[in-house]
Structures are given as C-alpha cells and as structure tokens.
Design a binder for these strands. Structure first.
Length: 437
RNA sequence: UCCUCAGUAGCUCAAUGGUAGAGCAUUCGGCUGUUAACCGAAGGGUUGUAGGUUCGAGUCCUACCUGAGGAGCCA
C-alpha cells in the first residue's frame, strides 16, 4: 500500500509510469462487461481510470463495477499518456480502496443530465462538486488573490471594517437590522467606506475586503443580499487617482485569470478574446456624454437620473473594454461625494461599467473634505448628526483630499467567467428568496 | 412591492376537456476502449394546495403557496 505515492490529478502528468494513488470521488462510470472506465475527481481535476477484469481480483473488479456516483474511493495504479483521454492522461487500475459507497437507496441526486436552477441550488452543497461550479469558484479564488496581491504590492494596508454598524452609511439603502443584546439596534454593514476614510488617515492607503449586506428586495441576475466587496481608500488622492487605480486593478486581475485559469475558462467556454481586450487605457467619458450616447441609442434617460440596468448594457455595447463614467449629478450620489468645483451640480464620482453588459463593477470617487460642507450635507440628507461626529472628526483633525472606490467581487467574477447569473459566483448565495443551504 | 411565466415519477420534460407517458437516475441482465457510452427488462404518480365549472379536469375558472425572469432599488 505504501508503495503507491499519493498525488493529485492536476499533477498526474508528472508521474507517468510511477506507482501512485489518487484519493477522490467517482464522478461517472462507464462499463462494458470486462472493462470499466471510472472517471475520478479529486478537487484538483478529473481523470479517467481503466480497470480490466483479467488484471484485477474478482471481488475488487465487481465492487468497482457496481460503484455508485460520488462514492469516495482511493485508486492505485500507474499514469499513462493517452491521446484518447480528455486531459491527455489515464490511470491503469492496479488496486483500490472504497472509502464510502453511496447506497443505491439514496443515490446521488445530481445526475449527469440537466437540472433546473431550483433543484441545483437546493442541493448547492453537492452542486459545488460539478465541473462548471468548480471552475467558477477556482476563478473566484484567483480573482480574490489577484485583488489582494495588487493592493499589497502597491503599499495599501489591509484594515478590515466592522460588520455591525450603528447607522446607515449612506442613508439611502435598506439595511438588515440585528438585535444587539436586546439593548440597541445595530445593522449589517452595507459598505466599509466611512471607516476606510478613518483608516486611510492613519495609514495613507488602505483597503478593506469583506462581506456586505443589502436588504433591498432586488430580484435580478445581478443581485445578492450578501456579497463581497473590496474597498480601497487613499489619503491625498483625487478622482483621477481612483480612475488610475481602478483601471490598474482590473487589468491586473484579468491578466492573472488569463495566465493561471485557462483550464477553468475553457470549461466555462469563455470567449478569451473578450478578456484579452480588457487592457488600459479604458475609455473615460462624462455622465453628460453617456446620457447623449444613451439618447442616441433609444434610451429614455434624461439628464439627472441614474442609469438603469438596460442603460448600462447599452453603454457597454459601445466599447470593447470597461468604460469609466464620471461626474454624475450630485443628486443621485451619496452625501459624502465631493462636488466638481467648476460645476457644483456634478459629483466627483466615477463608475466603471464592465464590458459585455455586466454592469457597474466599480463605483467610487473623491470625498468631501471640508468640515462645513460635510456638516451641511449631513443636515441636508436628514442624517443623525450625533452618529456622524466621529466622521466629522476626520475633517476637524488634518483633513485632506481623499478618494476611494468599491468593487463588487461577485459581479467581477460573473463578468470574467461570462456567467448569466451572479448566484453561481459564490459558494452559498444569499438572495431575496434563498437563505438555504 | 409590482408585472410576466411556470409547478405532472428522484431529475428534465410530454399528454386536443375523454385509460397519466418518455429520457435520465435506481434495480436486474448483456457487452474488453467507453466519452452525458450503448442494448434489453422491471419498479416508480394524491398532476403544488384548497375550492369551483363539467357526465368527465393534468388541461377551464378563483384564491393561496412555491419557483423563475424582469422592473424599481442597488455593487
């Protein structure tokens, strides 16, 4: 038994001819009388094994031949290059150990045929084992790693923000309320931004990376109630810095995925030319320009309104890469946005609209840094002044121009993977009508 | 919250108002190169729930439940 060295399927090609073992699960089994083809997956990949009756003990051959889908099994044998096999390699079975056999009375529910979304997401804990979902989550991991590598290597310090917050960050969106020891109400964070402004004044450049929550009853392919967001914030920075960093981040992220996740992109049948087109510089247009473009394309948008999902799609059709839209009407942006000194009616904010109709992936801009202006805004938005004293402190003690943005991780994943729906981009999605499993 | 569509076997779906069916999965049998393998056989149903119309309802009507897509809102 110890003669067989444990390897992962991903590295099978490096061990041809050696006695090795693979510990995994039965993904599928094709059999033909005296020869069987178990397809084994181990989390790193899948490989077809070949078992010949004459070469194996009778009881082992029969046990493998009758093995049920997703039974856990350790296969021992030798790897061989095989032109007919999918990954280019096959394993000839010399021995095996069945770790747990899935009973036939309770067969694995997800068969190799089609299923509906309700069924699949009710069985999400098992659905994750299938090839497509595995590929999506591998790419998600790559994207998250790229994001962290980008910020870490550009002098940003990770300072995470609280999940429990005492009040609304932006005053507009609906929050999840939590009973906090029956003493007071707290809310699940919808953004770490206000806290980021504090940490940026302490560290210069910071970012937070964590889950955020929105209690809006959005029921579309672009929304989750719990999603992950990365939010950088920079002291002594302006709107232009936000655009530069956002562009660099996206280009870096896409590069990493193209470099390291070719296999997964192929599994998803992603059009690579669309990803390869995502290079700097991204087109930069103003909100005014965007409205003109949309009007020409038949949208009913009027100056002063925010873009709907359809508008974002129409806009993205004009470009082969993400487009940056800046200087939105102050009215549609949150209270903390700095206004353009030359045009007080527009805010120094920018949205990055992803290509191929994937919508807004990044939103951010320059923050108000004058104490008086911020106080005015808080009053104008009917926000509780008391709760914002600490935030006002940031303008009392060494206030500087500063800026930052937030990127929705799931939207980025859906975009780079080319997915129809955001629910596949996270292991256990939380949506309007789904909190299980 | 609003609009639209859909709920039939474990799963994916069929069935003009007239005897509820197929493929996959499961069980049994066959096959030494299969690629969502294939071939033969068997078991498997309170047609989402509650009413109603009708000689007769999976099918038509009403309400409710569940889900999907979209709108608004948002990343």
């Amino acid at each position: 038994m110890s003669d067989y060295r444990r390897i992962t399927i991903a590295k099978a090609g490096e061990h041809t001819g050696e006695p090795v073992e693979i510990a995994g699960w039965l993904y599928n089994l094709r059999k033909s009388g005296k020869i069987i083809f178990p397809l084994i997956r181990d989390g790193s990949g899948t490989i077809q094994c070949v078992g010949v009756k004459s070469a194996l003990p009778e009881d082992l051959f029969e046990a493998l031949k009758n093995l049920t889908q997703e039974s856990s099994v350790i296969i021992r044998g030798k790897i061989r290059a095989e032109a007919r096999a999918q990954g280019g390699f096959e394993m000839d079975i010399e021995g095996a150990e069945i770790v747990q056999r899935v009973p036939e009375e309770t067969p694995y529910p997800i068969t190799p045929k089609e299923h509906g979304t309700e069924f699949l997401f009710d069985h999400r804990h098992l659905h994750l084992r299938s090839r497509r979902q595995h590929a999506v989550l591998k790419i998600r991991h790559e994207i998250i790693k790229a994001i962290r590598d980008y910020f870490d290597s550009n002098d940003f310090t990770l300072v995470d923000c609280p999940i429990f917050t005492p009040a609304a960050c932006e005053g507009t969106t609906t929050l999840f309320e939590v009973n906090y020891f029956d003493e007071e109400k707290v809310y699940l964070t919808q953004s770490g931004q206000l806290y980021n402004e504090a940490t940026a004044m302490a560290f210069g450049k910071t970012y937070c990376f964590g889950p955020t929550f929105r209690a809006e009853k959005s029921k579309t392919r672009r929304h989750l109630t719990e999603f992950w967001m990365v939010e950088p914030e920079m002291a002594y920075a302006t709107l232009d810095d936000v655009k530069r960093v956002a562009e660099e981040l996206i280009v870096f992220m896409v590069g990493r995925v193209l470099e390291n996740r070719k296999t997964e992109l192929a599994t998803l049948e992603r059009d690579l030319t669309k990803l390869e087109a995502i290079k700097g510089p991204f087109p930069r247009i103003s909100y005014d320009d965007a409205v003109e473009i949309l009007k020409k394309k038949g949208s009913e948008i009027v100056w002063g309104g925010d873009f709907g999902g359809t508008d974002e799609t129409l806009l993205s059709e004009e470009f082969d890469r993400p487009v940056m839209v800046d200087r939105y009407p102050t009215e549609v942006k949150a209270f903390y946005f700095e206004t353009d000194p030359n045009r007080p009616e527009v805010a120094l904010g920018v949205d990055v609209i992803a290509s191929e109709g994937y919508g807004e992936v990044i939103g951010g801009g320059q923050r108000v840094h004058s104490y008086d202006t911020l106080l005015e805004r808080i009053k104008a938005h009917n926000l509780p002044e008391e709760a914002f004293q600490w935030y006002l402190d940031l303008r009392r003690y060494g206030s500087v121009p500063h800026a930052g943005f937030g990127m929705g991780v799931e939207r980025a994943v859906a975009w780079l993977c080319g997915l129809e729906h955001i629910r596949e981009t996270i292991a256990f999605p939380r949506m309007l009508y789904r909190t299980r499993p």
